[in-house]
Design a protein around this nucleic acid. Structure first.
Lengths: 110, 110
DNA sequence: AATATTTATCGTAATATTGCAATATTACAA
DNA sequence: TTGTAATATTGCAATATTACGATAAATATT
């Protein structure tokens, strides 16, 4: 137990769930929003921007990168991160799909 | 530790993060997709639909309800659940906002 | 080479999540 | 009222997550 039974669900359900899980933390949302705000990619001042210790930020960045939400490229001895637009687009597409399916149904039951 | 430091982030960041956390599980995505598919609300055959034990499903439903993603109304001795469109719309709005901010920036750094 | 800067990794404590068996609760039916 | 069907709650074991100090690894600077 304590383990999600991923084998019981579809590939898409697991995929979307992993992406959302990666975003579903206020620090990681703050990181993404900061990266979006400063438009072109920025490296380690994410650490200065957030009220968290450097290893904690580094760990969150790693999770975001593993999920494919951000990309990082080496820039001298620093690392430059930026949002992966394609992945964000994928999530947006999922929700707009869900939303349009819901809009078709005018009847509210609850 | 093990606790998210919610007090360090904005209300919106925490709110979106809670909503996404509630969705970020394949079983809960499956529940939401099923509720959307069967259009008007359905009650306990969600349990038959999913390959999980009844208490497990009940717990997932509770989390979705606490997050405001679904609503439940008592229908005899059964309970009728359905998706809360307003909450889904809120999430969709968040991502389409993020997406349009990203679209403004043509320069890719990474 | 020695030192500083930047980021990652390791180890660990505290807490949260997942899943289910057992049991409780609630509403209806006979 | 006794039984049955539908959900919820409790308790618990297994695992995952969060946060950070200490430390490592890599490159820059002097």
């Amino acid at each position: 137990m304590g383990t999600t039974k991923t084998d019981l669900f579809t590939h898409e359900q697991n995929e979307i769930s992993s992406l959302l899980k990666a975003i579903a933390h206020p620090a990681r949302i703050a990181i993404l929003e900061y990266l979006i705000k400063v438009d072109t990619c920025i490296c380690g001042d994410i650490v200065n921007e957030l009220p968290l210790a450097q290893p904690t930020v580094s760990q969150h960045l790693k999770e975001l990168k593993n999920a494919g939400l951000i990309k990082g490229s080496i820039e001298g001895n620093a690392i430059c991160y930026c949002v992966d637009k394609a992945t964000v687009a994928r999530i947006e597409a999922y929700f707009s799909g869900v939303s349009s399916k819901l809009d078709c149904k005018t009847d509210q039951c609850c």
